[in-house]
């Protein structure tokens, strides 16, 4: 059984056995479902087993407490990766991917973590297969106000979601677009558009909506609330560190860099030093809503 989804204009499909219990857990994908597409960008196929192959580890992942672990391997003609929910937990899913990131064979090793494995496989391959298509999968929380999307970026635990919540509570007319993994795309006319996705971290916010980007803002904890525009170099560092992709692949790296440059040219980037309080939302909204 095949179901297709469209996220930020890119189509992918899941191919699972008809009766597979994982279908019942994929509600977050429902808003993005489209009639079955004959030529998706990539498919994720659930398989019972994967052939034993020689895998050469290329990336061990940055092991941060509480954060998912992704191990990446090279295999003959493509890639393989393994996923665990956090450091110290067993691998719950293994995937073999072809060299063009168009076909994922996913084996779930721990059924209770099947959705986690599916989500991570889909997110990873989405990022890889769209890297050359003016698309970035970002680690960000996004609020919409006045028809524009405002992205908050920072390392986990810094206060992205908190700042979104401060806008929801204090800046009239705000709503949450995505709380963890929005997709941004440079459109044909050069502007940056921000899309909701089926992936939103711990917050179930799976909106199939999109808005022009207002600004990318890095959140930095500080005793003072203040905001300033970033230089080109700082904006590059922010996008580079906040977007998914695999820079070991030359074509992917070229694609990501082309997208960074277009976004930096089209959309302002800021640093917001802030406390987690209502005044922080006042300071950021006064500047950002005037853009």
């Amino acid at each position: 059984m095949t179901k297709s989804y469209k996220v930020a204009g890119h189509v992918f499909s899941f191919v699972f056995p008809e009766e597979h219990p994982l279908w019942g857990l994929t509600g977050q994908y429902k808003p993005f479902e489209i009639p079955t597409d004959p030529s998706p960008l990539f498919i994720v196929e659930l398989v019972e087993s994967l052939p034993v192959e020689t895998l050469e580890k290329v990336y061990g992942g940055d092991e941060e407490p509480g954060q998912p672990v992704i191990l990446l391997y090279r295999r003959n003609g493509g890639w393989a990766f393994e996923m665990a929910p956090c450091p110290g937990r067993p691998v719950c899913g293994r995937a073999y991917v072809d060299g063009t990131f168009s076909h994922v064979r996913l084996q779930i090793l721990r059924p209770s973590e099947g959705l986690f494995a599916l989500n991570n496989a889909a997110m990873l391959v989405f990022a890889f297969s769209t890297a050359s298509l003016d698309t970035l999968e970002m680690h960000a929380s996004v609020v919409v106000n006045s028809g524009k999307a405002f992205l908050w970026l920072a390392k986990s635990g810094t206060g992205k979601s908190t700042h979104s919540q401060l806008w929801l509570d204090n800046v009239q007319g705000s709503h949450l677009l995505n709380d963890d993994n929005p997709v941004v795309r440079v459109m044909e006319d050069g502007h940056t558009e921000v899309f909701g996705t089926p992936w939103s971290g711990k917050t179930p916010c799976y909106r199939n909506e999109h808005y022009p980007a207002g600004a990318f803002t890095e959140i930095v904890r500080s005793p003072e609330n203040r905001i300033r525009r970033k230089s080109v170099l700082e904006a590059y560092a922010l996008l580079y560190s906040s977007s998914s992709g695999f820079k070991a692949d030359p074509a992917m790296s070229d694609g990501l860099n082309a997208t960074y440059e277009k976004i930096i040219t089209a959309t302002p980037c800021f640093t917001l030093e802030c406390r987690p309080d209502a005044d922080a939302a006042r300071v950021s909204s006064e500047t950002l809503l005037k853009l």
Binding site: Y59, R74, Y236, Y240, K247, P250, S253, N257, Y260, E261
Partner: peptide
């Protein structure tokens, strides 16, 4: 690899040899 982005010259770690290099 050296890239020029909006007039800035930036070196990043690319390729499998530098997969864990996380600075620019």
């Amino acid at each position: 690899k050296l890239r020029t982005i909006v007039g800035e010259h930036i070196v990043t770690g690319e390729g499998l040899a530098q997969v864990n290099f996380n600075k620019i």
